[in-house]
Amino acid sequence: MRSRWIRTTLAGLMAVAVVGLSGCGNDSTDTPSPPSAGGSSAAVTGNVTVFAAASLTESFTEIGKDFEAANPGTKVIFNFAGSSALATQINQGAPADVFASAAPKNMATVTDAGNGTGTATTFVKNQLVIAVAKGNPKGIKGLSDLTKPGLKVALCAEQVPCGAAAKKAIDAAKVKITPVTLEQDVKGALSKVKLGEVDASLVYRTDAKAATADVDAVEFPESAQAINDYPIIVLKKAPNAAGAQAFVDYVLSDKATSLLTEAGFQAP
């Protein structure tokens, strides 16, 4: 009785393991079907797995839907996270087709490890703004206003792209800002403003734009010194190389670019 129970359980576990493994392997056997006559230039099918920076969440989700509509039979699977986490995952062998990074540095992590194909293409740029509470109650007009005593400021930590950009812009403005917190990502810095815990934070224009219900964005000239390039690349071990290339081409198309600029990005 007991041994039968164990056997059944083991069989179940094996089944799970097999299903799991085949699930993982599926992508690699998903070779793109040959281009069908009369289809668009490069008809592709199957899953396209895209690892993209967290700041691309809203716009890439849209672009993914458009891409699927333009290429019937394809499915875009996104993994949105911080660029550095994504770069680590890719270098550790995650089965991704495309990598879209929020900073060239994290792209370099992947290409230096030999995991990219060709050179990465910059598809958009992003710039910092000062996010303040709706209606700007503290009357913040520029970076120098952030040095006022009693004013609470959140910045991103220098280790993450938005923090590196903030440091560049602050250095360019030659001001000394003492933040109360160094957030681990741009969404963290933004949420501190949303919740009213800080009076201002430096975030990307796109993030401020996505949160217009809660925050106002104050543009400042020094942000031009800290423009962030977003590179995209087809990965070397892409299980669906043709699909990956088609997706990258689509992101670089006019249609996708206009969608991205609408979200607050700048064309490269």
Partner: peptide, 23 residues
């Protein structure tokens, strides 16, 4: 990190330092 934030010497404990170092 959500409630107290992250600032060296004030609120940056080891787990927070580890997370940022990971970047």
């Amino acid at each position: 990190i959500t409630f107290a934030g992250n600032y060296p010497g004030t609120t940056q404990t080891m787990p927070l330092a580890v997370y940022l170092a990971l970047e």
